[in-house]
Design a protein around this nucleic acid. Structure first.
Lengths: 188, 188
DNA sequence: TCGGGCATGTAAGTCGTTACATGATTCG
DNA sequence: CGAATCATGTAACGACTTACATGCCCGA
């Protein structure tokens, strides 16, 4: 995965290993993190494979190794970006790809998000069934927290599904916020 | 982590490695998964440490290795369960502990969930700030999806915060569902 | 009778992280 | 002038997963 995250990060900019880390952190730090101990070796690997080139840039007596993506690197990245992202990997890790979706046609992106949404809905259904079975048991207060984790999953999926609905219609993202509590418009 | 998940799983029941896997899968499969390749070696380690004992049970000519937790194993598990869960680990992995919170006093559990909620709120605040900076830039449509992942994070955190609010008040969990769309009560 | 589930394990590989080692520059 | 940040890397370790190896039992 990191291999592709790096390629995506240097897709439009020539960066150093150090820069790459910062970009990953500030960009998708919420879904994915990387340490230097993994970035530098992978950069060497990408160099061997010819997916990147390295230019030594001398800045005030020091060498900065700036990495630029090659044509074959771009191809490799785009292949990864387009290929089936729904069936494999965790639900969160799918967001790593979405982060780079500005590089593919809108239409394709919406289709992929639609697939993702279906997967989420199926999963949510499963959890709801499990929850209902669970709730038929007696001694409810002996497993309140166990049950609460099921609700956690269902709710989280609900908010992810809403996100999909909004994004795939290209709606204003602000719609996702500001609709808490109130039934009718106040005077804010 | 798996070490403790196993101890928690056999806390009340004597189980085989195979059973343990099924229990983990059906119980917290949504936050945590384990393969046999990790369960069996860890079971041996727990045996060495004296946290579990193993009883060979012969069922129709076959040996089943049933593992029972010991006193020191229970102590070790409870220590892990109580110790600081907020500062380390991912947001999701905190749920693994919550799953076992029926084993600690309600009051303690609520306090821990309250801490967790604070962490979520701080994180959400960070993301909202980042989002607002982001939105001040021009060429909005060149990074719609990048921005959408930020919204994804904010929304997900919102639903997690709502979960915390509900659970720490010991509210009926159903409150978390059924409050979509409608502003006033219908006739359901 | 045969496929799927029960049941236990090992070996190799993956994909990282943590800690270490080094040193230069920049800003208050 | 010293702390933070820039910058590059390695070695050891960790926590798993995947694939393999084995074989029994049970129900259609």
């Amino acid at each position: 995965m990191l291999e592709f995250v790096i390629l995506g990060t240097i897709f439009d900019n020539t960066l150093t290993g150090y820069d790459i880390r910062k970009c990953i952190e500030s960009g998708i730090g919420m879904f994915y993190r990387a340490s230097y101990g993994s970035i530098y070796p992978i950069l060497s690997k990408l160099l061997d494979k010819g997916y990147v080139t390295c230019i030594d840039e001398v800045v005030s007596n020091r060498i900065k190794k700036k990495y630029r993506i090659t044509k074959s690197g771009k191809d490799e990245f785009m292949k990864w970006l387009i290929e089936d992202n729904v069936s494999n990997g965790s639900l969160e890790s799918a967001m790593v790809k979405v982060y780079f979706f500005d590089k593919i046609p809108r239409r394709t992106a919406y289709e992929k998000i639609n697939e993702y949404e279906e997967k989420l809905r199926n999963y949510q259904m499963e959890l709801i069934n499990k929850k209902e079975k669970f709730e038929k048991l007696k001694n409810r207060d002996t497993f309140y927290f166990k049950l609460s984790t099921l609700y956690f999953g269902i709710c989280k999926l609900q908010s992810m599904i809403r996100w999909c609905e909004t994004v795939k219609q290209g709606k204003n993202l602000d719609f996702l916020l500001h609709n808490e509590e109130e039934g009718y418009a106040g005077d804010n």
